[in-house]
Computed example of a mutant assay.
Amino acid sequence: MDIAVTSGAIATLLAEAAGTAPEECCGLLLGAGGRIDSAMPARNVSPRPLIRFEIDPAALLAAHKAARGGGPQVIGYYHSHPTGHPVPSPTDCEHSTGDLRIWAIIAGGQVAFWQDSEDGFLRLCYRLDDG
């Protein structure tokens, strides 16, 4: 599966990862279908933000409420690996639910996209689409 991503979403992901290092950043991917229109930063409420992330539940609930009101859909999540690679970590894999949501992982100035499938995380190809 290929997805479309706006350059603004990519810029947000890279800026958030750089701005929160050495802690992990996290947030939501918003859009529709296979298109990510924006990335919405959320507070990392993990008690161990240097090595874990936990999206602020209030941000997640607010985004779902906005989507029910006609706003962009929550199609996935993002987080960074400040000292790692843009691939799912063992901890990420433990938290996989198979819900088909898209995960973006930012590391080393790169963004990689993954789909949380019943068979684990599957790498996604993406193209920039600002149209």
Rank of each mutant, 00 (worst) to 15 (best):
D2M: 12
D2N: 13
V5I: 14
A9F: 00
A11M: 01
T12R: 05
L13H: 03
L14S: 01
A17R: 03
G19E: 09
A21G: 09
P22D: 02
P22T: 02
E23D: 14
E24L: 10
E24A: 09
E24I: 01
C26S: 09
L28C: 07
L28K: 05
L28D: 08
L29H: 04
L30N: 06
L30P: 10
L30D: 07
G31R: 02
A32V: 04
A32I: 01
G34Q: 13
R35W: 06
R35A: 14
A42N: 04
A42R: 03
R43T: 15
P47V: 11
P47M: 03
R48S: 09
P49I: 13
F53A: 14
I55F: 03
P57V: 04
P57R: 00
A58W: 05
A59R: 11
A59S: 15
L61E: 14
L61H: 06
A62H: 08
A62Q: 12
A62R: 15
A66M: 06
G70K: 07
P72T: 13
P72Q: 11
Q73Y: 07
V74W: 00
I75P: 11
Y77H: 15
H79M: 13
H81E: 13
H81Y: 10
H81A: 12
P82T: 13
T83Y: 05
G84N: 11
H85C: 08
P86C: 08
P88D: 00
S89R: 04
S89E: 06
P90H: 08
T91W: 06
T91R: 06
D92I: 14
D92C: 10
C93K: 13
C93Q: 14
H95K: 12
H95L: 11
S96D: 10
T97H: 04
T97N: 07
G98T: 11
G98S: 09
D99I: 01
L100Q: 13
L100K: 10
R101M: 13
R101H: 13
W103A: 10
W103V: 09
W103I: 07
W103K: 12
I106T: 10
I106F: 03
I106L: 08
G109N: 07
Q110D: 10
A112C: 09
F113M: 07
F113W: 04
W114H: 05
D116K: 00
D116R: 00
S117F: 03
S117W: 01
E118S: 06
E118N: 05
D119E: 12
L122R: 15
R123A: 13
R123K: 11
G131K: 04
